[in-house]
Amino acid sequence: MADSSVERDGLHGVAPDRDAHITPGRRRRRAADSMVPEPEFQSYYGRPILHQPTWKALDIAGYFFFGGLAGASSTLAVAASATGHPALARPLRYGAAGAITVSAAALVHDLGRPGRFYNMLRVLKPSSPMSVGSWILAAYGPAAIGAALPLPAPLGAPLSVAAAALGPAVATYTAVLVSDTAVPAWHEGYCEMPFLFAGSAAAAASGLGLVTTPVSGAGPARRLGVIGATAELAVGRVMRRRMGMVGEVYEQGRAGRLVKAAEALSLAGIGLAVAGRRSRAASAAAGVCWLAGSALTRFGVFEAGVQSAADPKYVVEPQRAGK
């Protein structure tokens, strides 16, 4: 507070800027005072602090799933053919080519106009998982498709190997993509998310193998599937527990239902795959379970993110706890 006066020679004691001083004694609202019971945390009319991801679930979760399916398939395909399981490798190659096409389509659809994808390739920004991912995709896509074409071995082999090498990156960078946001249910899970996505991708690829390959030749798929699905289940639970209170969104609402279904399917897949080792039908069923389970896992993760962004408490409480 400045005190000013008006004297014969002019004005004295002008305040700096317009820093009005305000009156002491005001206190923040206390539960006792207020009409509505004080919520355990404060917010601005319960409005979200973060903006919801603007992505469409079908496009982006779908993009994650098919990307993972493609990537893992390419890898398993090469491993399989190298170890004498041609019957398994072939469908996986086609599967990868198909899946990556669908995946790319989903991405472009979410962007709105195909032309906009090219802006992705204007620059390579290591700080942007989406930029890095776009380049990986740009390299992997052609390779995976090439590997599926009837090309002469000297051409086909390197393409298959390239796809096999890049496939896992395609399957896991999307985990970084979602984790590298302010969305609590995504970011808080960044330690486990890549493993969850890798496992989920493995299960999906294996599922595709079991569906398309006679039991005799599908051994690798069966084994990888069990590993993948188990990882998917285990990592998911670890992740949710470690997230603390934010983890609860994975058990609530739409996300909760999706995750439960996903877990049930992965589990069923494991059961069928092991028990029905000799049965084509049972194996195919296990494959379907893993494919569906993997897809639902991604949708579950996506939904959980949206739900956590919609409720300010998932932003406020962890940050307060962190303080």
């Binding site: 400045a2 005190d3 305040a15 317009r18 009005a20």
Partner: peptide, 12 residues
């Protein structure tokens, strides 16, 4: 009202 704010700043 800015002048009220200004007056306040000068101790009003």
């Amino acid at each position: 009202y800015q002048w009220v704010a200004e007056a306040k700043a000068r101790g009003a």
